[in-house]
Protein backbone atom coordinates (compact mmCIF):
# COMPACT_ATOMS: atom_id res chain seq x y z
CA UNK A 1 0.00 0.00 0.00
CA UNK A 2 1.50 3.35 -0.98
CA UNK A 3 0.81 4.71 2.45
CA UNK A 4 3.22 7.62 2.38
CA UNK A 5 1.32 9.20 -0.49
CA UNK A 6 -1.77 9.67 1.69
CA UNK A 7 -0.13 12.06 4.11
CA UNK A 8 0.77 11.80 7.74
CA UNK A 9 -1.81 10.94 10.38
CA UNK A 10 0.46 11.10 13.41
CA UNK A 11 3.69 13.03 13.45
CA UNK A 12 5.91 12.75 16.52
CA UNK A 13 9.03 14.88 16.68
CA UNK A 14 11.86 14.87 19.22
CA UNK A 15 9.61 13.51 21.92
CA UNK A 16 11.08 13.24 25.39
CA UNK A 17 9.18 11.44 28.12
CA UNK A 18 10.55 10.55 31.50
CA UNK A 19 9.59 9.57 35.00
CA UNK A 20 11.69 11.05 37.76
CA UNK A 21 15.31 10.86 36.66
CA UNK A 22 14.79 8.25 33.98
CA UNK A 23 14.26 9.14 30.34
CA UNK A 24 12.02 6.56 28.77
CA UNK A 25 11.69 8.15 25.36
CA UNK A 26 14.62 10.24 24.24
CA UNK A 27 14.18 12.51 21.24
CA UNK A 28 11.91 10.05 19.54
CA UNK A 29 10.53 10.86 16.09
CA UNK A 30 7.98 8.81 14.21
CA UNK A 31 5.48 9.23 11.39
CA UNK A 32 2.35 7.18 10.98
CA UNK A 33 0.90 7.53 7.51
CA UNK A 34 -2.76 7.79 6.80
CA UNK A 35 -4.38 4.49 5.96
CA UNK A 36 -1.59 2.20 7.10
CA UNK A 37 -1.22 -0.36 9.82
CA UNK A 38 1.90 0.45 11.77
CA UNK A 39 3.22 -2.21 14.10
CA UNK A 40 5.28 -0.84 16.94
CA UNK A 41 7.70 -3.26 18.53
CA UNK A 42 10.28 -3.05 21.28
CA UNK A 43 11.56 -4.93 24.28
CA UNK A 44 9.55 -5.10 27.45
CA UNK A 45 9.85 -1.95 29.51
CA UNK A 46 11.33 -0.01 26.62
CA UNK A 47 8.35 2.31 26.49
CA UNK A 48 6.13 1.11 23.66
CA UNK A 49 2.99 1.65 25.66
CA UNK A 50 4.43 4.88 27.03
CA UNK A 51 4.63 6.28 23.50
CA UNK A 52 1.05 5.29 22.82
CA UNK A 53 -0.12 6.74 26.11
CA UNK A 54 1.81 9.94 25.47
CA UNK A 55 0.24 10.39 22.05
CA UNK A 56 -3.25 9.95 23.45
CA UNK A 57 -2.52 12.29 26.32
CA UNK A 58 -2.34 9.99 29.34
CA UNK A 59 1.34 10.58 30.01
CA UNK A 60 2.76 14.11 29.98
CA UNK A 61 5.65 14.82 27.64
CA UNK A 62 8.70 16.83 28.56
CA UNK A 63 9.73 18.04 25.15
CA UNK A 64 8.86 17.58 21.53
CA UNK A 65 5.72 17.86 19.49
CA UNK A 66 2.89 15.48 18.69
CA UNK A 67 0.63 16.23 15.76
CA UNK A 68 -2.46 14.15 15.12
CA UNK A 69 -4.32 14.86 11.88
CA UNK A 70 -2.39 18.11 11.59
CA UNK A 71 -3.32 19.34 15.08
CA UNK A 72 -0.43 20.06 17.42
CA UNK A 73 -1.78 18.56 20.62
CA UNK A 74 0.62 20.54 22.78
CA UNK A 75 -0.86 23.84 21.61
CA UNK A 76 -4.40 22.86 20.75
CA UNK A 77 -7.28 24.54 22.53
CA UNK A 78 -9.59 22.41 24.63
CA UNK A 79 -12.11 22.28 21.77
CA UNK A 80 -9.53 21.26 19.18
CA UNK A 81 -8.26 18.60 21.55
CA UNK A 82 -11.69 17.22 22.13
CA UNK A 83 -12.37 17.19 18.41
CA UNK A 84 -9.16 15.22 17.91
CA UNK A 85 -10.06 12.83 20.71
CA UNK A 86 -13.30 12.11 18.94
CA UNK A 87 -11.38 11.08 15.85
CA UNK A 88 -9.46 8.31 17.53
CA UNK A 89 -10.43 5.10 19.19
CA UNK A 90 -8.34 3.15 21.63
CA UNK A 91 -8.24 -0.52 22.44
CA UNK A 92 -6.50 -1.06 25.73
CA UNK A 93 -4.58 -4.19 26.50
CA UNK A 94 -7.17 -5.58 28.90
CA UNK A 95 -10.06 -4.05 27.02
CA UNK A 96 -10.81 -1.51 29.77
CA UNK A 97 -14.53 -1.97 29.39
CA UNK A 98 -16.56 -0.20 32.07
CA UNK A 99 -17.28 -3.09 34.40
CA UNK A 100 -20.44 -1.56 35.81
CA UNK A 101 -22.04 -1.23 32.37
CA UNK A 102 -23.37 -3.89 30.04
CA UNK A 103 -21.87 -4.54 26.62
CA UNK A 104 -24.60 -2.44 25.05
CA UNK A 105 -24.02 0.48 27.41
CA UNK A 106 -20.28 0.24 26.89
CA UNK A 107 -20.58 0.57 23.14
CA UNK A 108 -23.19 3.31 23.43
CA UNK A 109 -21.25 5.26 26.05
CA UNK A 110 -19.22 7.54 23.75
CA UNK A 111 -22.14 7.98 21.33
CA UNK A 112 -24.59 8.89 24.06
CA UNK A 113 -22.24 11.63 25.13
CA UNK A 114 -21.32 13.15 21.82
CA UNK A 115 -24.18 12.47 19.46
CA UNK A 116 -27.71 13.72 19.83
CA UNK A 117 -29.55 10.71 18.48
CA UNK A 118 -32.63 8.81 19.45
CA UNK A 119 -32.48 5.73 21.66
CA UNK A 120 -33.66 3.53 18.84
CA UNK A 121 -30.94 4.66 16.49
CA UNK A 122 -28.41 4.33 19.31
CA UNK A 123 -29.57 0.78 19.79
CA UNK A 124 -29.29 -0.05 16.10
CA UNK A 125 -25.83 1.44 15.82
CA UNK A 126 -24.63 -0.46 18.87
CA UNK A 127 -25.86 -3.75 17.44
CA UNK A 128 -24.34 -2.92 14.06
CA UNK A 129 -20.97 -2.14 15.67
CA UNK A 130 -21.07 -5.39 17.60
CA UNK A 131 -21.89 -7.33 14.45
CA UNK A 132 -19.04 -5.58 12.71
CA UNK A 133 -16.58 -7.05 15.20
CA UNK A 134 -18.16 -10.47 14.88
CA UNK A 135 -20.35 -10.60 17.98
CA UNK A 136 -23.91 -11.81 18.05
CA UNK A 137 -26.79 -9.83 19.42
CA UNK A 138 -27.13 -12.11 22.46
CA UNK A 139 -24.11 -10.59 24.21
CA UNK A 140 -25.53 -7.08 24.42
CA UNK A 141 -26.98 -7.45 27.91
CA UNK A 142 -24.02 -9.24 29.43
CA UNK A 143 -21.55 -7.58 31.74
CA UNK A 144 -17.83 -7.56 30.91
CA UNK A 145 -17.16 -10.02 33.75
CA UNK A 146 -19.32 -12.59 31.95
CA UNK A 147 -17.30 -12.44 28.73
CA UNK A 148 -14.21 -14.34 27.60
CA UNK A 149 -10.95 -12.51 26.94
CA UNK A 150 -11.45 -12.59 23.19
CA UNK A 151 -15.00 -11.29 23.45
CA UNK A 152 -13.90 -8.47 25.74
CA UNK A 153 -11.39 -7.39 23.12
CA UNK A 154 -14.04 -7.47 20.44
CA UNK A 155 -16.45 -5.41 22.52
CA UNK A 156 -13.64 -2.99 23.33
CA UNK A 157 -12.90 -2.72 19.63
CA UNK A 158 -16.57 -2.05 18.92
CA UNK A 159 -16.49 0.71 21.53
CA UNK A 160 -13.30 2.13 20.05
CA UNK A 161 -15.07 2.26 16.67
CA UNK A 162 -18.27 3.72 18.11
CA UNK A 163 -17.63 7.26 16.93
CA UNK A 164 -16.28 6.17 13.51
CA UNK A 165 -12.70 7.17 14.25
CA UNK A 166 -10.01 7.78 11.66
CA UNK A 167 -7.20 6.52 13.82
CA UNK A 168 -7.25 3.44 16.03
CA UNK A 169 -4.67 2.71 18.69
CA UNK A 170 -4.30 -0.91 19.66
CA UNK A 171 -2.28 -1.92 22.71
CA UNK A 172 -1.21 -5.54 22.23
CA UNK A 173 -4.51 -6.56 20.67
CA UNK A 174 -3.68 -10.25 20.44
CA UNK A 175 -2.06 -10.73 23.84
CA UNK A 176 -3.91 -13.25 25.95
CA UNK A 177 -5.66 -14.84 22.97
CA UNK A 178 -5.02 -18.36 21.73
CA UNK A 179 -3.34 -18.60 18.30
CA UNK A 180 -6.62 -19.17 16.48
CA UNK A 181 -8.35 -16.33 18.29
CA UNK A 182 -5.33 -14.12 17.67
CA UNK A 183 -5.37 -14.91 13.95
CA UNK A 184 -9.09 -14.18 13.82
CA UNK A 185 -8.54 -10.90 15.57
CA UNK A 186 -5.73 -9.99 13.18
CA UNK A 187 -8.04 -10.67 10.25
CA UNK A 188 -10.76 -8.63 11.87
CA UNK A 189 -8.45 -5.67 12.31
CA UNK A 190 -7.25 -5.96 8.73
CA UNK A 191 -10.77 -6.21 7.34
CA UNK A 192 -12.04 -3.29 9.37
CA UNK A 193 -9.00 -1.24 8.54
CA UNK A 194 -9.53 -1.78 4.84
CA UNK A 195 -13.29 -1.31 4.78
CA UNK A 196 -13.31 1.71 7.07
CA UNK A 197 -10.06 3.23 5.80
CA UNK A 198 -8.56 3.38 9.28
CA UNK A 199 -5.09 4.34 10.30
CA UNK A 200 -3.94 1.78 12.84
CA UNK A 201 -1.19 2.25 15.39
CA UNK A 202 -0.57 -1.12 16.95
CA UNK A 203 1.73 -1.88 19.83
CA UNK A 204 2.45 -5.57 19.62
CA UNK A 205 4.71 -8.46 20.44
CA UNK A 206 3.00 -10.84 18.13
CA UNK A 207 5.22 -11.75 15.20
CA UNK A 208 2.26 -13.24 13.34
CA UNK A 209 0.46 -9.92 13.51
CA UNK A 210 3.54 -8.15 12.27
CA UNK A 211 3.88 -10.51 9.31
CA UNK A 212 0.24 -10.67 8.32
CA UNK A 213 -1.35 -7.30 8.86
CA UNK A 214 1.26 -4.59 9.32
CA UNK A 215 2.16 -2.39 6.40
CA UNK A 216 5.11 -0.95 8.23
CA UNK A 217 6.91 -1.72 11.45
CA UNK A 218 8.72 0.67 13.76
CA UNK A 219 11.11 -0.66 16.36
CA UNK A 220 11.92 1.04 19.63
CA UNK A 221 15.17 0.68 21.54
CA UNK A 222 17.00 3.02 23.91
CA UNK A 223 14.19 5.54 23.71
CA UNK A 224 14.43 6.01 19.96
CA UNK A 225 12.96 4.50 16.84
CA UNK A 226 15.88 2.47 15.56
CA UNK A 227 14.23 1.35 12.35
CA UNK A 228 10.95 1.91 10.55
CA UNK A 229 9.77 0.37 7.34
CA UNK A 230 8.18 -2.71 5.86
CA UNK A 231 9.04 -6.19 7.06
CA UNK A 232 11.85 -6.53 4.55
CA UNK A 233 13.63 -3.55 6.10
CA UNK A 234 13.35 -5.10 9.53
CA UNK A 235 14.70 -8.41 8.35
CA UNK A 236 17.57 -6.76 6.55
CA UNK A 237 18.54 -4.62 9.53
CA UNK A 238 21.86 -5.27 11.20
CA UNK A 239 20.82 -3.87 14.58
CA UNK A 240 21.52 -6.58 17.16
CA UNK A 241 18.17 -6.28 18.90
CA UNK A 242 16.25 -6.47 15.63
CA UNK A 243 18.33 -9.45 14.53
CA UNK A 244 17.58 -11.23 17.76
CA UNK A 245 13.90 -10.28 17.53
CA UNK A 246 13.17 -11.28 13.96
CA UNK A 247 15.75 -13.99 13.44
CA UNK A 248 15.49 -15.65 16.83
CA UNK A 249 13.95 -19.04 17.26
CA UNK A 250 10.42 -17.75 17.51
CA UNK A 251 11.00 -15.34 14.65
CA UNK A 252 11.91 -18.15 12.31
CA UNK A 253 8.91 -20.21 13.25
CA UNK A 254 6.49 -17.37 12.85
CA UNK A 255 5.40 -15.81 9.64
CA UNK A 256 3.83 -17.26 6.53
CA UNK A 257 5.82 -18.93 3.82
CA UNK A 258 6.81 -16.39 1.22
CA UNK A 259 9.51 -13.89 0.46
CA UNK A 260 9.52 -12.50 3.99
CA UNK A 261 9.80 -15.96 5.47
CA UNK A 262 12.47 -16.96 3.01
CA UNK A 263 14.45 -13.86 3.79
CA UNK A 264 14.07 -14.50 7.48
CA UNK A 265 15.35 -18.01 7.06
CA UNK A 266 18.18 -16.86 4.87
CA UNK A 267 19.14 -14.14 7.28
CA UNK A 268 19.22 -16.57 10.15
CA UNK A 269 21.18 -19.17 8.31
Amino acid sequence: MPAAANGVAIRVRDLVVGFGGARILDQLSLDVFRGEVLGFVGGSGQGKSVLMRTIIGLVPKREGTIEVSGVDLGRASAEERQATERRWGILFQQGALFSSLTVRQNVQFPMREYLEISDRLLEEIAVAKLEMVGLKADVVDKFPSELSGGMIKRVALARALALDPEIVFLDEPTSGLDPIGAADFDNLIRTLQQTLGLTVFMVTHDLDSLYTICDRIAALADGKVIAAGPMATMLASEHPWLKAYFHGQRGRLAGPAGPARAMGAAGAA
Partner: peptide, 15 residues
Protein backbone atom coordinates in the same frame (compact mmCIF):
# COMPACT_ATOMS: atom_id res chain seq x y z
CA UNK B 1 -10.11 -1.34 40.45
CA UNK B 2 -11.28 0.94 37.65
CA UNK B 3 -7.78 2.36 37.57
CA UNK B 4 -6.24 -1.09 37.54
CA UNK B 5 -8.35 -2.10 34.55
CA UNK B 6 -7.46 1.13 32.73
CA UNK B 7 -11.13 2.11 32.78
CA UNK B 8 -10.17 5.55 34.04
CA UNK B 9 -7.68 5.93 31.19
CA UNK B 10 -10.34 4.80 28.73
CA UNK B 11 -12.67 7.49 30.04
CA UNK B 12 -10.01 10.12 29.72
CA UNK B 13 -9.11 9.17 26.17
CA UNK B 14 -12.76 9.39 25.17
CA UNK B 15 -12.62 13.02 26.24
Amino acid sequence: SMRMREEVDALRTMG
